[in-house]
Amino acid sequence: MDPYWVIFLKALVMSVLLLGGFAYLTWLQRRLLARFQHRIGPNRTGWEGLLQPIADAIKMIFKQDVTPTHADKVVFILAPGISVVFALVAFGAIPAGPANSLFGMDPWIVDLDIGLLYVLATTSIGVYGIFLGGWAANSKYSLLGSLRSSAQIISYELGLGLSVLSVIMIAGTLNLREIVEINVWSVSPLLWPGLLVALFAFWISATAEVSNVPFDLPEAEQELVAGYITEYSSLKFALFFMAEYVGMITASAFISTLFLGGWKGPGFVDALVPGMSEWPFVWLFLKIFVLLTIFIWLQASLMRFRYDQLMRFGWVWLFEIALGAALLTGAVIAFVL
């Protein structure tokens, strides 16, 4: 284990990297969406528009910071902070490589025995930022937007919680590092159907958790203006977006860690370069990149749910599918293996 000041520095670097990841994720999103729609997208600021996120950040920082008179001042200011802090903190438990592979340091911030629960818990605390922000703004659009968002997020938490059960049953641990070491797919092909359904349910729940299309009800601007961020301006507005995009990155990393082998690469690359599948960071980064691209692809392809359909889908379909997947995996372990 590393000394504490090293851990602090690593956590700081991770946070800054995640924020940089957020900035360039917006760039990637705008460029890709433009391509999907036969446009060009931002390409003026820097080479291929690569300086666009920095220009946006500077603009955000120097905008006037308005707090409405009727707002609950303290909570109004704290809410974006809560959102972004818990979004950043969630990533810390995800391992990015084998022990001691980052110049002799461990490529993770904390190695928790309850890592899986920790990531689930911290990502769901983010809902406090959304709810408190919308409530404190004391505007009808904000309030309705935040109610909708938080109801949506807590509803899909059920699917999220139930679909990881298959992984836990196979791995027998909540430690994310050990889950990657075990690699749930390698245990037995008979477990694949349960795992596939669980992966499917988990992916959909995670999409809803980060409010990505087709679950982007918080951004239903025709009905809600901008949802819970209606009254926010300047960097506080940006903080909510940071939290959302960092949430997308964390969700991708979490899906990779639980279901797609985490930081490990596919075995066949070892034939090309020995030890290549053990390279730290590379594989996790690639997997996150692919999953994020799929998130953006969904944005270009799908339409938004209606709110009652969304709730029904989460409570009826996803709940039952996720529970079914867990029971299927359990039955296979108990009676076939």
């Binding site: 284990m1 956590a11 700081l12 946070s15 809560i82 802090v85 903190v89 810390g92 300047s234 506080k236």
Partner: peptide, 22 residues
């Protein structure tokens, strides 16, 4: 304690952002 360090660092970023916009 490592977890505490992580919260400290993330909290620092959050507070810094709120201070900058102030």
């Amino acid at each position: 304690t490592a977890l505490f360090m992580l919260f400290l660092a993330a909290g620092f970023i959050g507070v810094a952002a709120l201070a900058i916009t102030f």
